[in-house]
Amino acid sequence: MTDVTEHTAARPRADFLHRFSVRDAGTLIGLVVILAVFGALVPGFFAERNLINILQQSSINACLALGMTLVIISGGIDLSVGPTAALSAVISASMLVAGVPFPLAIAAGFAIGLVCGLLNGVLVAYVGLQPFIVTLGTLSTYRALALIYTGGNPVLGLPAGFRAIFNGSLFGLPLAVIIVAVVALIAWVILKKTPFGEYLLAVGGNEEAAYIAGVPIARTKIAAYMISGLLAALAAQILIGRLGAAEPILGNLWELDAIAAAAIGGASLMGGKGSVVGTILGAVILGTMRNGLTLMNVQSFYQLLATGLIILAAMLIDRVTRGRG
């Protein structure tokens, strides 16, 4: 596959196709198959409204999964995204209810996400603790802070104006979907076109070699966790905009869906490997499964089972096709 580069370099179109990796094509085929199956089984599945529904339902997970993908590529993991989102949500929400201007309240929510990510990153990069343990610890810590801050009660009655921001639509698409699409585009540019993207891949692929080559290891890792925190905060704003309320327990188990989307999309938990396109497709696959099974009135137990099987199937296909370099 890689052998063709010399011939294609001159042609931008072929170059684009070349960049669309074999692994991403596999994920896309998986999505097409799943869509076809539901299309055949569920009447009205392909209705425009339902397809938009799927995108909308996938958008929050996709948003988190993009940050997760960057962290996973750097060789880490972020289990704290759900509680980070919750903390960001309740603080923004309480400011909104208190009458703070929208931009300020939203900025405060983003700042919370960045700070949560910063703490994760510093503990991983400077203190040298294992990412799994660090974010397991902050998972409880951030959740506890959200619960303590609210006394365990939801923050209700968000202003209609705020809700309108995230519930609007543009060109017939929900604004949430468009926001996440823009975020995905930015993430793709970061990974493919910036030194930071190369550094992420190098740090996750071989930290020692990256260090000798002068890559700023700590800064790279911390930035990945901060982006993950920021995107968790963005997901939180989208959610509370939709619901009109912020619960301190929101975002429970979000980290697992985000990891699943990244893994289905080809990210390796060993680090050094992952794809923005793949992760988006992975999130849409999970969203499609949920939507289709719900329309078929399948019990939620079986939905969980299906999700599990999809993840395992993706990993098995990865394993089987790996040998062909």
């Binding site: 891949l201 190098a202 692929g205 071989n206 070699a209 050094g272």
Partner: peptide
């Protein structure tokens, strides 16, 4: 261990 990033290309 200290030289190459195995999955990345020669250029990278």
């Amino acid at each position: 261990r200290e030289g190459i990033v195995p999955l990345r290309s020669i250029s990278s």
